[in-house]
Computed example of a mutant assay.
Amino acid sequence: MTFSIDKISLSRTISSEIVLIIKDNLLRGVLKPGDKLPTEKELMEQFGVSRTPVREAIKILEAIGVIQIKRGEGMFITNNLSQFTLNPLIFSLIMHSNNMEQLIEFRQHFEVLLMNMIITNGQKDISRIEEVYQSQEERMNSDLSPEELADIDLEFHYAVLEATNNPFVIEIGKTIYEIIKPNMIHFKHSSNIERTLKTHNFYLELLRGNIDFNSGTVVQQMIKNNEEMVK
């Protein structure tokens, strides 16, 4: 399969350009659900780039549900493309993912929004969030790899997303976390794990109503927590 490829722009990262090209080919019907993609080596040749940006693009596309990797068979366009998968806003976040500082700033205020949405919902159910937190207390230990600890950390944030019951917020949030994930702290010492659990417990106390969300210091504390989590 040969893609319809315009000249790759140097204003974005190469991996972001590859993601955009595949998205455009989907929108134009060159690619369809179920189609098998070229191999990694073939993509390198078609795009005229090295292996690294191709792999980065594949990770992004897999994370947002555009492609599915079947071991021993190859890469395929998923048959379950959702209405959000090709959402311009989602792809805008991906295209700007190289500006990590501003993305982190956005995440800081995004999580304040999440807390506010859940707290102001009179029928809020945080049982799943509490369950995930208790599981984290049991599972997080210094013997796990940085990747495993990052995955366990994100389980909490995904549970918070789901508690908003807002599909737009959930899809945007998942994309933000997938983009930020490689830059998250690699937990190598117990102090990092303790800080994560302390931050998650702070969020829980907010949701339980034990901390006044309207306090001016709460938002500042949440932003500070997020800054520490991605340094």
Rank of each mutant, 00 (worst) to 15 (best):
I172M: 15
N210P: 00
N214Y: 06
I193K: 00
I176W: 00
K198S: 14
N201M: 12
V219G: 04
I211N: 00
I172N: 10
L204R: 13
H186K: 15
N210G: 04
N214K: 11
I180E: 05
M222T: 02
I179K: 06
N210H: 14
L204V: 06
S190I: 13
L204F: 03
R208W: 05
L204C: 09
E171M: 12
F202D: 05
M184V: 04
T175N: 03
Y177D: 11
T175H: 07
F213L: 02
N210Q: 12
Y177T: 08
H186N: 12
M184Y: 09
E205K: 15
I172H: 12
E171A: 15
N183C: 04
K188F: 07
N192D: 14
F213R: 00
E205A: 10
S191M: 09
T199C: 10
H189V: 11
M184G: 13
E171I: 07
I211T: 01
S190P: 04
I172F: 14
Q221F: 03
N183Q: 01
Q221E: 09
F187A: 11
M222S: 01
E171F: 14
R195V: 12
T175W: 02
T175D: 00
Q221M: 08
R195Y: 14
I185S: 01
I211F: 01
D212F: 05
N201L: 13
T199K: 13
R195T: 13
L197N: 07
I211R: 12
I180T: 01
S215N: 15
Q220T: 11
K174M: 10
E178C: 02
E194D: 13
I172T: 15
I172V: 15
Q221Y: 03
E194R: 14
N201T: 07
L207M: 09
I170D: 06
R208E: 12
E205R: 15
K188G: 10
V219I: 08
T199Q: 13
L206A: 06
T217L: 09
N192Y: 12
L207R: 06
Y203G: 03
G216R: 10
I193R: 00
E178P: 00
V219Y: 05
I211M: 01
G209I: 07
I211G: 00
K174T: 10
L207N: 04
